[in-house]
């Protein structure tokens, strides 16, 4: 049986993890490779690296990091953040990334999704959607959720799926950082409407939140950052809990 995926997300700046991490076994708390290895050994099903470096010459650092990660771990990983061209994707895939995720680039130029899917295959193109509710309507946001667009989230998700996205990474900016649970209703709505997998993100604060997003939220995967980094929830205990709750999980 296909299992639901648990995905830790690592924020990267200049080749280093940025958000504080609380791993006693880390020799170097800022080393993404070491952290990736720990998560992989603990049973993470995939990893996401989100690069928040802005400058162009730092992109080379990212490709080098991707190679180091690919050499070190044996689970799939996605790289996102500032990717806008087919050439960007080519470099990162060649460096060893399994998937890339695009966000603003798709909003600015939706055709880039078609181009990337055609060039590299849908399986490695994840479209990240940051969404926020305004007056009861879900709108796509860019710039880390600060800048609203006129795109309605449900319609945009359908459009990128039709254009060839292989997966959707749906982050609820209303829930992100609240630790009050994922945006189950919206996730379920989008997951039910699409034939591609949906990764839910934003709001994880407890183990039942994961159960809820996999059941009510119909998510195929759930992503979280700080609760894993700060060891509030360990991946092995989370997986044991979910298995106990009858969720299909890789042990």
């Amino acid at each position: 049986m296909l299992t639901k995926r648990i995905i830790p997300c690592l924020d990267i700046k200049d080749g280093r993890t940025v958000k504080g991490v609380n791993f006693v076994q880390l020799r170097d708390a800022g080393d993404p490779v070491e952290l990736a290895k720990i998560y992989s050994d603990e049973g993470a099903d995939e990893l996401v690296f989100l690069d928040i470096t802005a400058t162009v010459d730092k992109r080379k650092t990212l490709a080098e990091l991707v190679t180091k990660v690919a050499k070190a771990i044996n689970i799939p990983f996605t790289v996102g953040g500032g990717i806008s061209t087919v050439e960007d994707v080519k470099v990162l895939l060649a460096a060893g990334a399994d998937k890339i995720s695009i966000n603003s680039a798709a909003v600015n130029n939706p055709k880039i999704v078609d181009e990337m899917a055609k060039e590299f295959g849908s399986q490695c193109i994840v479209v990240a959607i940051d969404t926020r509710t305004m007056d009861g309507i879900d709108f796509v946001h860019t710039h880390g959720g600060r800048k609203p667009t006129l795109l309605k989230t449900q319609a945009w998700a359908k459009e990128v799926a039709d254009r060839g996205a292989g997966e959707i990474l749906l982050t609820s900016m209303d829930h992100d950082g609240t630790k009050s649970g994922f945006a189950n209703e919206l996730t379920a709505e989008i997951s039910s409407a699409l034939s591609i997998p949906v990764i839910a993100s934003g709001g994880a604060g407890s183990m039942p939140h994961f159960k809820d997003v996999f059941t009510f939220g119909r998510a195929d995967a759930a992503l979280a950052a700080s609760i894993f980094h700060f060891k509030e929830i360990g991946i092995p205990e989370l997986k044991s809990y979910l298995i106990g709750e009858g969720i299909s999980i890789r042990k």
Partner: peptide, 17 residues
């Protein structure tokens, strides 16, 4: 070809036994 597209996504992505 999923009989029920809400239940089964295509592609088949993830860990299976």
């Amino acid at each position: 070809i999923p009989e029920n597209s809400q239940e089964f996504k295509v592609p088949h992505v993830g860990w299976n036994e």
